[in-house]
């Protein structure tokens, strides 16, 4: 009889594989992205099942929250002719299959040589996780103490990327009318309204 965890594992794994196949085979690119998001959620589920809840949440936040949403934006804002992109699928298929076969063969050979199991793995010992500390807290503790230095430098690298994006793309356009909220609020009745008494029978 299957344990509950096994059941959940097979459920997530089957959904993951199914939706991943869907990403490749779906005709409509919008469906591809939505299936990709489903794939990420299932992968996150697998991670949480493994006890790596931080990586699971990260997957949802970063890949779903940022990257997949960006894909959606790109799809919606840029006019791409997907028929053109899919052209030549048949001619690339053989080379793709060959690369896939080679990778598969490598994996099989490595598996047969026992790279994934047995003696080699057991010589490597993982860092023991302290009892009762969930891994988000554990990561936080080392990230902001032990690894503070590279962590902060990584933050600076992100800052540089932001500066770069602005420097290389931002243009100040001439003659653009911008909304000036302060000017709008500071407007008084006297500035914009003048009352003119018009006598009957005469114009202004």
């Amino acid at each position: 009889m299957l344990a509950f965890a096994d059941l959940v594992f097979y459920m997530f794994a089957a959904m993951l594989l199914g939706s991943a196949m869907g990403v490749i085979f779906a005709k409509n690119p919008m469906h591809c992205v939505l299936l990709l998001i489903l794939t990420f959620f299932n992968a996150a589920g697998l991670f949480i099942l493994l006890g790596a809840e931080f990586i699971g949440l990260l997957l949802v936040m970063v890949y779903v929250g940022a990257i997949a949403v960006m894909f959606l934006f790109v799809l919606m804002t840029i006019d791409i002719d997907f028929a053109v992109l899919k052209e030549g699928f048949a001619s690339y298929l053989p080379s793709g299959l060959i690369v896939g076969a080679v990778l598969m063969a490598e994996l099989v050979i490595a598996g047969q040589a026992g790279l994934f199991s047995g003696a080699r793995i057991s010589t490597l010992t993982a860092m023991p996780a302290p009892d009762g500390v969930e891994n988000i807290r554990a990561l936080g503790q080392v990230l902001f103490t032990h690894y503070l230095f590279p962590f902060q430098v990584a933050a600076l690298i992100l800052l540089v990327a932001m500066i770069g994006a602005i420097v290389l793309t931002h243009r100040r356009r001439e003659g653009v009318r911008r909304q000036n909220v302060m000017a709008q609020i500071a407007r008084t009745r006297e500035d914009s309204l003048s009352i003119v008494k018009v006598k009957p029978g005469q114009g202004i």
Binding site: Y147, P150, V153, L156, V160, A161, V167, L168
Partner: peptide
């Protein structure tokens, strides 16, 4: 440390990529 070396190198390189294309 390998980590510190890598982040330092990337910080330098990113700035240089942008600077090379500065005259856009």
């Amino acid at each position: 440390d390998l980590l510190a070396m890598y982040v330092g190198m990337e910080l330098m390189s990113f700035c240089l990529y942008i600077l090379a294309a500065f005259w856009r």
